[in-house]
């Protein structure tokens, strides 16, 4: 039997609520999701908001950018960097990775995909 992961698309906010090339934090029940509008690349990303290094709710306030074309975010606390596409820690130490979520835009509204 083929098991399919069912995605629930959750309406997070309007596209204009998220600053260009920056992030915001989205409340989803008791979870916190960091949502990024990488407008320079025309891309949207979502990850967990908690930085696994010191368990701080801060990823959404991090600066985003690229490293060899890989989109990434830097936690404001100690500048640990994580890939926005895979969530993998790029800082060369094993502080843990970020969970990532799919994002879709429809009619200027931002939806985040949650696996049920």
């Amino acid at each position: 039997m083929i098991q399919e992961n069912v995605l629930t698309w959750f309406l997070a906010c309007r596209t204009t609520d998220v600053p260009d090339n920056g992030g915001v934090c989205v409340k989803y029940h008791d979870d916190q999701i960091a949502l990024f509008n990488f407008s320079r690349r025309g891309e949207w990303y979502a990850t967990q908001n908690m930085c696994p290094h010191r368990m701080q709710m801060a990823i959404s306030r991090g600066m985003i950018g690229t490293q060899n074309s890989e989109p990434k975010v830097a936690c404001p606390f100690h500048k640990k960097t994580f890939s926005l596409s895979t969530g993998k820690c790029l800082s060369g130490d094993d502080c843990g990775d970020l969970k990532t979520y799919p994002v879709k835009i429809e009619n200027d509204l931002v939806y985040i995909g949650i696996e049920e």
Binding site: N21, F38, R40, R41, G62, M63, G65, T66, Q67, S69, P71, K72, A74, K79, T81
Partner: peptide, 10 residues
């Protein structure tokens, strides 16, 4: 070039 990062933005 590219999209910037936490080293060049500040």
């Amino acid at each position: 070039t590219g999209d910037g990062c936490e080293l060049c933005k500040p």
